[in-house]
């Protein structure tokens, strides 16, 4: 009895080690395979040019249209989500701080919205677009992605705003400030690093998602120049190039995947670095 227990413990411990390291190994394999395959096809031409004639049959050009398109779309969507998201997160944590039931309700709704798959946002965005008489465009894509990253933005800000100690609010009130001053002047400053992390997290999500822009942003070989025109995005350019039968075009898809991965890694690196930096304005208790 005792002996078998020991064997059981040993077996499970080995299984646990295997499980843990297999996760790390899979991550390494993913990064390695994307890098190894992508680096071969990566060139200055791909990064700096838009697709030339016959690009999708293996002729010259690059994916600058998709890179700039993705950046502008993600940037716009993150900005919009910030404008709508920050006040919501602040409202929950400053105005509703004594109404526990309402807080729970709103957090619950946000979690629900967070769980909705991005393709559903894409389909919804598409039907709204038709309703409003819009074409596939940067604006439509931006609005759809905004809806998609909004819950992510709010919930991550909410997590950090919860950590602001009650003493800080009391001190602020005692100096005669009103609630919105407390929210926008004190809470935001106390949590700058967390808010930046939330913004970068949302930006990463916005730039990497394909399913929500598939219907709404369209695709074009031109650089983005107007809100009302279609725009190319990196995930979709990877997807389209990969479905080509021409090997040279497929290789470019791998290079594009590498570019997207690098952008994502850079963003996550930034958010780690920046989080440590902005501690100056923070009051420690």
């Amino acid at each position: 009895m005792k002996y078998s227990g020991k064997i059981e413990e040993k077996v499970f411990k080995i299984l646990m080690v295997i499980a843990t390291y297999s996760i790390l190994a899979v991550l390494a394999i993913i990064i390695y395979s994307i890098f190894a395959k992508g680096i071969k096809a990566l060139s200055w031409e791909i990064l700096s040019q838009v697709p030339q004639g016959g690009y999708y049959y293996g002729k010259g050009g690059g994916i600058l249209n998709a890179i700039l398109g993705s950046l502008s779309l993600a940037f716009g969507a993150t900005l919009l989500a910030f404008i709508v998201g920050l006040p919501v997160a602040l409202y929950i944590n400053v105005f509703l701080v004594r109404r526990k039931k309402l807080i729970t309700l709103f957090r619950f709704i946000l979690d629900l919205v967070w769980g909705i798959p991005s393709i559903v946002y894409g389909a919804f965005g598409f039907s709204m677009m038709i309703l409003l008489g819009l074409q596939t465009s940067l604006l439509a894509g931006m609005l759809t992605v905004t809806l998609f990253i909004l819950p992510i933005m709010i919930r991550s800000m909410d997590e950090i705003l919860q950590t602001v100690p009650i003493g800080l609010s009391e001190a602020t009130y005692s100096l005669g400030a009103n609630k919105s001053e407390l929210a926008f002047k004190i809470f935001t400053r106390q949590t700058v690093s967390g808010i930046i992390t939330a913004i970068l997290l949302s930006f990463g999500r916005a730039i990497g998602d394909a399913a929500s822009v598939l219907f709404t942003a369209g695709y074009t070989d031109n650089l983005p120049n107007s809100l009302m025109e279609p725009v190319a995005t990196l995930p979709l350019s990877i997807f389209f190039q990969l479905s080509s039968p021409v090997p040279a075009v497929q290789d470019r898809a791998y290079a594009s995947a590498l570019v997207l991965t690098l952008i994502i890694l850079l963003v996550s690196l930034f958010s780690r670095g920046l989080g440590k930096r902005y501690h100056k304005t923070k009051i420690n208790f």
Binding site: L27, S33, I34, L242, S268
Partner: peptide, 23 residues
Amino acid sequence: MHPAIDILAGIPSVVYGVWGILV
């Protein structure tokens, strides 16, 4: 472990798809 999990969570689904096709 935490950064590893974060990176896994941050990789876009298209890149997962590319990895799926490659590996």
